[in-house]
Nucleic acid binder design. Sequence first.
DNA 1: CGAAAAAGGTTGCATTAAAAAACCAAATCA
DNA 2: TGATTTGGTTTTTTAATGCAACCTTTTTCG
Lengths: 153, 153
Amino acid sequence: MTRKRFDDLGCSVACALNEVGDWWSLLVIKQAMLGTRRFVDFQNGLGIAKNILCDRLSRLVDNGVMTRVNVGEHGTRYEYRLTDKGRDLFAVVVALRQWSERWNGNKDAMQLVDRSSGAPLAPVVVQNADGEVLTVKDVLFVDENGQPLERAG
Amino acid sequence: MTRKRFDDLGCSVACALNEVGDWWSLLVIKQAMLGTRRFVDFQNGLGIAKNILCDRLSRLVDNGVMTRVNVGEHGTRYEYRLTDKGRDLFAVVVALRQWSERWNGNKDAMQLVDRSSGAPLAPVVVQNADGEVLTVKDVLFVDENGQPLERAG
DNA sequence: CGAAAAAGGTTGCATTAAAAAACCAAATCA
DNA sequence: TGATTTGGTTTTTTAATGCAACCTTTTTCG
């Protein structure tokens, strides 16, 4: 059974999940944000099977999230690096991290701090144009005609 | 082959992906944020197979992301609602939406606006305690001993 | 009230993806 | 030069996905 495609769902979230929504892709990206670039380092850092890692890396390259750079002296020795598109997932990764720490406790040996001050980061939140924090109840989903979709509750 | 567990990776992101990291879960959550509560509405809204929807909903309930409420008049008729933990994924969902719109164009028929002003939302970003926007290069990953992990580049 | 339809699943089957391990060629190290 | 590392591919086994059919309880509607 072919994996259901999310492209044609008419939904940006679905479209994003199509590119980075499987079990491993976002972990590969997080590992890359941590500084990992080499195939073996991804493998050791994540405990992922090599064939799956191959598949994910090439899919991420195809989608423009990472690039494969030949760094060999006399042949092919590769590095995988985040593109701007990949680095732009930073907010998603940090938001996920923080959510997990808030609700499941800190299972992580690593901490994320501001490089210049050493202080912890602020929680990632949704804000309006004035910088006010918005919850799901403070937003409206409007369709292509500008008509608001009624939300129960 | 048992699906690899991400719990014991010692990583908060992995732990989060364990709960909401598969193809469908986050879409179910997004649909719930849109106001959907009934089984058939999730099914029609997402085009998901019923057995998969059953599995995802009960897993989300098990993980405390949603609750199943009996709303039957004379028996059992269920609604699935987000918990506080589930609603707290708002920033993750919006960040994913915005990322997809930025890099893949707006594939979505729906827009997300501030309810009180009708204006679009601000981009979801990572900030330090002073509200300054941070990129991946502005943060440091420190281990349990407070030692910074060297990042190449 | 009674019949029909809808809600909320469960089951079985065919197809696909994931995990692990073995294997392999090219490149680098000692 | 020889051993080892890197970056894969292939094979096999197991799990997950999608689809359709079926089933029971609850509403709805005449």
